[in-house]
Each structure stands twice: as structure tokens, then as C-alpha cells.
Lab assay of single mutants.
Amino acid sequence: QVNQQQLQQLMDMGFTREHAMEALLNTSTMEQATEYLLTHP
């Protein structure tokens, strides 16, 4: 289960819902999730 607010923040940054969910499931903080998305295009 992912934090919906964090998911929305990542989608607002331009990431897809699927990619943002993957990042949130594989990390524990927003900072890590953002870094994950930038390093796993």
C-alpha cells in the first residue's frame, strides 16, 4: 500500500502512476522515491 499523497506528488512531478507506485513500494522516503525514479527511467 502506498501513501496516496506521496503518489500524487510524484505524479504532479510528471511521473506516471505506475512508475511512481513502483518507486514508493521500493523505497521508504519521498527523497528515495524521487531518486529511484530519476535513476530508473
Rank of each mutant, 00 (worst) to 15 (best):
Q1N: 02
V2L: 07
V2H: 07
V2E: 06
V2Q: 15
N3Q: 09
Q5F: 05
Q5T: 13
Q5P: 06
Q6I: 09
Q6M: 06
L7T: 11
L7D: 04
Q8P: 02
Q9F: 03
Q9S: 10
M11I: 12
M11E: 14
M11P: 00
M11R: 04
D12A: 11
D12R: 11
D12C: 02
D12Q: 14
M13C: 06
M13L: 09
G14M: 01
G14F: 00
G14P: 00
G14D: 12
G14V: 00
F15P: 01
F15L: 04
F15I: 15
T16E: 13
R17Y: 02
R17F: 02
E18A: 05
H19M: 13
H19L: 12
H19I: 09
A20V: 05
A20G: 10
A20P: 00
A20D: 00
M21P: 01
M21G: 10
A23W: 00
A23M: 00
A23Q: 04
A23Y: 01
A23T: 01
A23F: 00
A23S: 07
L24C: 14
L24W: 07
L25F: 07
L25P: 04
L25H: 13
N26G: 12
T27M: 05
T27D: 03
T27R: 07
T27N: 15
T29A: 05
T29R: 04
T29S: 13
T29K: 14
T29H: 06
M30F: 14
M30N: 06
E31I: 04
Q32M: 06
Q32R: 07
A33F: 00
A33D: 02
T34Q: 15
T34A: 06
E35C: 04
E35T: 10
Y36H: 12
L37T: 07
L37V: 07
L38F: 11
L38H: 15
L38D: 14
L38C: 10
T39M: 10
T39D: 08
T39Y: 03
H40D: 13
H40Y: 09
H40M: 14
H40A: 14
P41Y: 15
P41R: 14
P41A: 06
